[in-house]
Write a protein that binds this DNA or RNA. Sequence first.
DNA 1: TCTTAATCGAGACGGTACGTCTCGTCTTAAT
DNA 2: ATTAAGACGAGACGTACCGTCTCGATTAAGA
Lengths: 214, 214, 214, 214
Amino acid sequence: MSKPPDSSRRSERSRRAILDSALALVGEVGYNKLTIEAIAARAGVGKQTIYRWWPSKAAVLLDASLALSGEAWTETGWSGFPDTGDLAADLKSVLRATVDEFADPRYEAPARALTAAGATDPELAARFTEQLLEPQLALYEARLRTAREAGQLAADTDVRLVTEMLVGPLTYRWLMRTGPLTHAFTDALVDSVLGGVAGATAGGADDVAKVTVR
Amino acid sequence: MSKPPDSSRRSERSRRAILDSALALVGEVGYNKLTIEAIAARAGVGKQTIYRWWPSKAAVLLDASLALSGEAWTETGWSGFPDTGDLAADLKSVLRATVDEFADPRYEAPARALTAAGATDPELAARFTEQLLEPQLALYEARLRTAREAGQLAADTDVRLVTEMLVGPLTYRWLMRTGPLTHAFTDALVDSVLGGVAGATAGGADDVAKVTVR
Amino acid sequence: MSKPPDSSRRSERSRRAILDSALALVGEVGYNKLTIEAIAARAGVGKQTIYRWWPSKAAVLLDASLALSGEAWTETGWSGFPDTGDLAADLKSVLRATVDEFADPRYEAPARALTAAGATDPELAARFTEQLLEPQLALYEARLRTAREAGQLAADTDVRLVTEMLVGPLTYRWLMRTGPLTHAFTDALVDSVLGGVAGATAGGADDVAKVTVR
Amino acid sequence: MSKPPDSSRRSERSRRAILDSALALVGEVGYNKLTIEAIAARAGVGKQTIYRWWPSKAAVLLDASLALSGEAWTETGWSGFPDTGDLAADLKSVLRATVDEFADPRYEAPARALTAAGATDPELAARFTEQLLEPQLALYEARLRTAREAGQLAADTDVRLVTEMLVGPLTYRWLMRTGPLTHAFTDALVDSVLGGVAGATAGGADDVAKVTVR
DNA sequence: TCTTAATCGAGACGGTACGTCTCGTCTTAAT
DNA sequence: ATTAAGACGAGACGTACCGTCTCGATTAAGA
């Protein structure tokens, strides 16, 4: 019944002002106290202009985060995942950068907000995952696939699983605050993921053992 | 100024009714639409009785979840983490149970709700972590410590790190819905964590290699 | 600053559609829920086309009523106030017609709307009175003046006062719904106005008495 | 479905503040720009407290007017309609007072507002008529009935009709602004109503004539 | 016949107010 | 003296219209 608005007539100025206000406010008052009224007021925009283009404050924040990560991409001049040939080093470097990002309040507030919103709103979570998360995971997977082809990983390695073994513990500790988020933590994580944690007497994994080779 | 209420006069009947209502409602309408008014109405309780004892709806839900997990504990007759001597098997068994729990809507709704609330409310998160999460992580750590002493893990193994390597990817996939939550997934996870994923030509971890034995 | 629009280029089609829509809508939803947006939508017209030519929805309705009364004029072939020589009969005939008009929902809705709007908007009321009311009152006054010259009214009769003595009670009863609007009511009104209501023993008006003369 | 609120717990303080604010605001900004939000804000009251007890701003204003007229009643120490025995004098005195009241902005604004609202809202109009108008009309009718019994009015006089012949023209001129509202106007009105306007040669009313005595 | 300038339908915009919902506090009755 | 009930001040929700402001697309002169 309700027809979609004509996006060709959309005001770019208002769109930017809304995204900027949302980012600023979520940092200032937190996600729970973030209101659409406040976003509209700060952006100098009518509420309807937000409701016309976004279904919820979480959706606004998602777009704002997308814009933010887009900027970060161009700002840092990042071309993609590093590939120096040294898998461990490359992974550590990326995970260290992620730790730094998590520590940057500019990114942390919206990231926590979106994670929280996504936890109880599957529809939003789908867009969040698809548009923000998956593109990043895909970079990991590509790098891991390269490594697998170079024989640095077992031939039957599930790159998605390994990706989540790297990103999962990091995200978990960030989200649950079960420990300090440091470069040392991610370095150890990379080593443990690649080398495994089983001892010499082994037995853990069915047909696998780990030996020190010098 | 505000005197703490006299907990000795607290109505146990009301307390239970509130927790039960909160659990029922969070499953029915979701966390976002869960309101204290609705909890009070369903529990046949005055709003003030909730405000007197809990600071927020998240706190109510946390207590409700604690009660729920307490019941589960006694219901299933669980005595703790299994220790059959086979570390991999024990971990797989526990993680499979966790997967099943995540799939049970009875647990999932409050779990997602608390995770979401905790993401943006550090105070709540602290209680959540301390009272629900840490006790469980401690069980992992204890089992891993036993394994380390038995030489099944490297002597310098950081059991907290390994715990998060197991729980982190599982939680991540559950929360972000980046893939199906299956027993196969957790089984592969355990194997990869214990054995590592580096290939024969190695190089990933500094001084570690993985060889297939037998 | 704002230049007046060029009325020679005005779309007659749109003008009619707007007036018709306004009349139809005021009958359907009432004056309070009548909106310019709805008028524009039903007329298949842009909002600006209304705002360009009218200052308010009340003004639209006034023009619509003027058009309507213009039509009624030509429809019924009325040439003016009847003058059969019998003043009482003429007045009764006109007031009966007015009663019938008040009962016609086609006229009643806009009439009530304009009266309501005029009650609190003097500017609108001025136009309403000048363009709709006064022309009608002038007809009464003319007829009464004729009667006065014929000696049917006291020589010093204030025709405006008498006009309002006829139209006032009728309008009052219509507006306030203090009683049924019937031909009997207006007939009695005419008789009472002409003859007065004082009894034989008089005393009411200073130097006036009323006597039955057969 | 929605249960009515418990009026025994109603805050008298809030009720008065709301009525006072409504009266003040309708005088300051007019009925059309009178908003419930503004009433609530000025009264230092939540909007819901208004919506809980009144269905519309017009209803608030009606209650405010009732309170106002109640005060006026006790303030002026009025005991009712004057009865000096001289009907014309009594009527003139009351109508002059009404003219003065209509000229008092304190009364005029709400009176116009209620009339306007009642014109298009029959439900409100019913309450308006019943609670404000009829009690006043009843006073006229009582006085006229007394006069009729005293022979000052024709024995078959319809006191309701005569009441409306007095109040109708006055209200009409006030509402439509068709002429100045003066004491001279109402004095002439009373004389004309009592004595009639037909001339000596008569003929207006069927079997009635007016003669000047003394 | 072809500009060309205004009106037109359409609808996005910054706003205001609506009437509803829920918050967290405060008051009341009764148990 | 504590509870269930619920009125209260506060303020955000999402919607409806306001009156203004672009947009092309007619459209009707005058060049």
